[in-house]
Amino acid sequence: MPNGLNLLFQFLDSFAFIVLAAAGLAIIFGIMGVINLAHGEFIMVGAYATTLANLEAGLPLPLAMLVGVLVTAMFGLVVERVVISGTVPNAIGRRVLGRDVVEPLYDRLADSMVATWGLSLVMVQGVRLTLGNSLDQIGTPLGKIAYGGFSYSSYRVLLAGVALGLLAATYLAFTRTDYGMRARATVQDDDTARALGVDTERTYMTTFALGSALAGFTGALYAPTITMVPGLGGSFLVEAFVAVVVGGPGVVLGTTLAGGLLGAINALFSNLVGTFFGRIALLVTAIVMLRFLPDGITGFLDRLRQRRQEGA
């Protein structure tokens, strides 16, 4: 029984981690066709802002978390204007050289990976140079659940609930709000969307800010549980990245299913063999999934649904 509980908690922990890490990235990838390899660093920004707000400015934890989210969202806006869409460099270029100097990174998957990688290097080193090699960590709230001879952090298990709530909220945002409509139209065909009056530029900007805010939220949530070093984003990035790609184009469903599958595999192997192998199993699963289901889980489900609908 204790081992069963262990496994359950490990699964919930892993599921939460993957979903929360992936959410922001999935939105940006799904809607803008941009792979943000600096996503981990955005999470770091959220975590750092939260920690500083709580420990330096003395704000209570929930408020500090809000600060973390807002700071990251604003930072995301800046990055979107400067790096992703190139609006700011182009405005400067037009004034100085009379022409555009950069092309937007939308739908340029490989280039966006390379560019955001450069961004992540700058961010990690920038934080290291300005804030040092580590920060003090906020204490983990809510204590532990004890069972048999084991215990597990209640906070981390709680995050699984938060993750589900986030998925639900994102689903509602995409299906019930104006922004959600516009975003989905833009994904389908941004030329058509524009012809229909959708301000695709605003939509992209909002989307990136939203994705950044979610990253900031993840950072804020995990700030009390992880070591505050500038490179902390790295451990989130891998899981996020892999989950987004395995999940496929369906933002909410894809992230949920990928989180479930990869979380289960990670938990199982970690439980049986060790954390290293849990990670390896997760990564190898991703490679195999990519090879056989290149459109991800939701891409595959889409095709199945098409076949069933029209075949019957």
Binding site: A110, F241, F276, I287, L290, R291, F292
Partner: peptide
């Protein structure tokens, strides 16, 4: 030969690097 193309090749190579890192580290 598995039909993986374009950016998914990049992603698989990236993930392979991570697999090896994790494996050799332990």
């Amino acid at each position: 030969y598995g039909g993986v193309r374009d950016v998914y090749v990049t992603i698989i190579t990236l993930v392979s690097t991570l697999v090896l890192h994790t494996f050799m580290a332990q």
